[in-house]
């Protein structure tokens, strides 16, 4: 479901698939464990293999940002498809944490 890459003070979490109401709790538990078990400055969620994020999945991204902000850490979401970028911007996500499109 997710793959973790640790790099200095950065943790990259690659999500292998969509983030939906059906699997959001599993991903939430994974994120929580990663946050509590590691020392880092930046938490990067890589959505290269993610086509769809529904409203429950967006809620998870927002909650993750809020948890990280409380402890002075940063959330970055990268490799976001053009369709998801439009959706995230309509939810004003980019005003709160960094989101970026597909890396070439």
């Amino acid at each position: 479901m997710i793959n973790i890459i640790k790099n200095d003070k950065k943790i990259v979490v690659q999500v292998d698939g969509d983030i939906l109401a059906t699997n959001v709790e599993i991903i939430r538990v994974n994120f929580k464990n990663i946050l509590s078990e590691n020392n880092f400055d930046e938490f990067v969620i890589d959505l290269l293999k993610t086509t769809m994020v529904d409203s429950v999945g967006i809620g998870l991204l927002v909650a993750t940002h809020n948890s990280l902000e409380k402890i002075g850490k940063k959330l970055l979401v990268r490799n976001v498809s053009s369709e998801l970028l439009i959706l995230f911007k309509s939810m004003r996500i980019e005003q709160h944490f960094s989101i970026s499109g597909m890396e070439k």
């Binding site: 529904d54 409203s55 967006i58 004003r92």
Partner: peptide, 16 residues
């Protein structure tokens, strides 16, 4: 509301 602050966003997504 500010969509970022909403507890749920489903209806807003439908409307948008």
């Amino acid at each position: 509301a500010d969509p970022f602050e909403l507890p749920s966003r489903g209806l807003l997504i439908l409307n948008q």
